[in-house]
């Protein structure tokens, strides 16, 4: 049989010397394991068996945590893809960019967000808005895909008037 014994320490008397003012340590009886923590009594919560972890957006938005970086958007050339000025992008570097992927690219040393399109003459970085022009990557320009955009996090501003 496996039972435990708990010994209550003496109550310290008020104003006594300081080395008495701690409860005496519990004394283990030979052969009996000792629980040093108090055991809470009372009715157990009926919800305990159904407890689940609260939703964590990191788990939902980040697939490869070592390869994921956050990037801030400046400009309005990608509104067609739901990417607005000031948005926060979740960018995954480990994902292989494909034709039509929205990517963070480095063009001539500068970070830019565009859609990667393979076309017969090379690679086109397509803007997502009529007012902005696409970038055709030709011989003398350097292009490196830095990462693939997975999510855009947009803060909803309740003060903005909706233009109908």
């Amino acid at each position: 049989m496996n039972s435990t014994v708990r010994m209550e320490g003496c109550r310290p008397f008020q104003g006594g010397p300081s080395f008495f003012s701690q409860p005496l340590p519990a004394i283990p009886l030979p052969g009996f394991p000792l629980l040093t923590k108090a055991i809470p009594a009372g009715f157990p919560s009926p919800a305990d068996d159904y407890a689940e972890e609260r939703i964590d957006l990191n788990n939902h938005l980040i697939e490869h945590k070592e390869a994921t970086f956050f990037v801030k958007v400046e400009g309005s050339s990608m509104t067609g893809f739901g990417i607005h000025d000031g948005d926060l992008l979740v960018v995954d570097r480990s994902v292989q960019p494909e034709d039509r992927s929205v990517v963070v690219a480095v063009v001539d040393g500068e970070f830019t967000i565009k859609q990667l399109c393979r076309i017969p003459d090379g690679i086109l970085l397509r803007a997502g808005s009529q007012a902005h022009s696409d970038i055709l990557i030709n011989g003398d320009q350097t292009l490196a895909v830095w990462g693939v955009v997975r999510w855009s996090i947009h803060k909803v501003d309740s003060c903005l008037a909706l233009s109908r």
């Binding site: 970086f69 956050f70 990037v71 801030k72 958007v73 400046e74 400009g75 309005s76 050339s77 990608m78 990417i83 000025d85 926060l88 992008l89 963070v104 500068e110 970070f111 830019t112 967000i113 565009k114």
Partner: peptide
Amino acid sequence: NYTTRISDLVVAKA
């Protein structure tokens, strides 16, 4: 601090 402070993120032009 690009990866540890939200105020210091890389900015990309769109």
